[in-house]
């Protein structure tokens, strides 16, 4: 083993189910086997997580896949060269509508909830409701977790594919932990969020989850490990050790039964601090849909590796992310994709 430049690492994560590889590597001693003493530090907002990473208060962090690219080109923050050396998870998000809005959709379709929820629901089913609202000078309100997030792009793409003009809806940002309250308080009509928050809305009987991100973009990277270029250059061996431990964790997370075990760890106070009945379903390929309706079988709901692929971001995946960012006006039209990709995805 080459010598490690640093052994005590501070790693930032957000309390979401897809931080599982970090928790597995910690709980099963994979970090330790690599000679690393990793402290997992729970963060409360993506913006502060990013600022701490940029400032060097965190060595590495779980990030929304578009975030390192946003930092690299200077969207929302002063530009700082970044690296995204490892994909932590694929898929895992879902779109949930408030109970009232979902009932309105069922009524319009003249179909019972069970039947509507058998298949992923297209946004076109909302067209009439949206048109009615617009006539009254109102807009349906959706929320997602961060501007530079797959959630944001999945939501806009789903709406546009359903023929919805984005001008006719409102999209705001609410932290994942505030999503369910906002839906319960009728401040929003729907959201696109990661686990366990869709399941939490269903368990509370305040919403219906109508599709998963796997139905929108199957097998795309969702969270990545982010480090600054400077950190990578100063700690190449440490970074290798870190990604080796995470690779071992992703491997361990392949069998579905193991994912139930990680669900139990995730519920602990230092991680998600929540209930197993909201954390477990997505991890074992079940999409809760609505109270009283049977869950939908979405075997690839949340993945930590994709068959036949390594956990490094491919150029195609990076290109895809940049295209989404550009389509949503989140990176300048002048950004040179190839140059950015070559810099952020160096392995």
């Amino acid at each position: 083993m080459s010598s490690l430049e640093k052994t005590q690492l501070a790693l930032g994560f957000m309390p979401l189910s897809d931080c599982a590889p970090l928790v597995v590597a910690k709980e099963l001693g994979f970090f330790q086997q690599q000679g690393l003493d990793v402290m997992l530090l729970r963060q409360n907002s993506w913006a502060t997580l990013r600022d701490k990473l940029h400032a060097g208060l965190l060595d590495a962090a779980q990030m929304l896949a578009p975030m390192p690219f946003a930092s690299h080109v200077g969207s929302g923050v002063e530009a700082l060269p970044m690296r995204a050396p490892f994909v932590l998870s694929y898929n895992g998000n879902g779109i949930t509508l408030s109970k009232a809005l979902f009932d309105e959709v069922c009524e319009q379709l003249q179909m019972p909830a069970e039947e509507v929820l058998l298949e992923p629901v297209a946004a076109s089913t909302l067209a009439d409701v949206i048109a009615k609202r617009v006539q009254c000078g109102e807009k349906l309100k959706f929320a997602t977790v961060f501007p530079f997030s797959c959630h944001y792009y999945q939501l806009t793409q789903w709406l546009e594919q359903g023929g919805i003009d984005l001008k006719d809806v409102e999209i705001s940002i609410i932290p994942p932990s505030g999503m369910v309250t906002a839906l319960a308080d009728k401040l929003i009509d729907g959201f696109c969020v990661g686990s366990p928050w869709n399941a939490a809305a269903v368990r509370l009987d305040i919403g219906a989850t109508i599709l998963t991100s796997n139905d929108i973009w199957p097998g795309q990277p969702e969270k990545v490990l982010g480090v600054t270029k400077q950190w990578q250059e100063q700690h190449p061996n440490t970074l290798n050790a870190l990604t080796d431990a995470l690779r071992q964790a992703s491997e361990w997370l392949k069998p579905v039964p193991n994912r139930f075990e990680v669900a139990r760890w995730l519920c602990q106070a230092q991680y998600l601090n929540t209930e197993l009945d909201v954390v477990a379903p997505a991890l074992i390929g079940s999409c809760l849909t609505k109270t009283g309706v049977k869950p939908r079988d979405v075997i690839d709901h949340t993945l930590f590796s994709v068959k036949g692929q390594s956990n490094e971001l491919s150029i195609e995946q990076g290109q895809w992310l940049l295209q989404q960012m550009q389509a949503n006006g989140h990176i300048p039209a002048t950004a040179q994709h190839d140059k950015v990709l070559g810099e952020v995805i160096t392995t």
Binding site: N44, S45, W46, A47, T48, S75, G76, V145, F146, P147, F148, E170, I171, S172, I173, I174, P175, S177, G178, H330
Partner: peptide, 18 residues
């Protein structure tokens, strides 16, 4: 508070210009 989850909401006011 720098540790408030709501910081992401404030950040988005700049990015999304809502």
């Amino acid at each position: 508070d720098v540790e408030s989850p709501d910081r992401d909401i404030l950040e988005s006011l700049h990015t999304l210009n809502t």
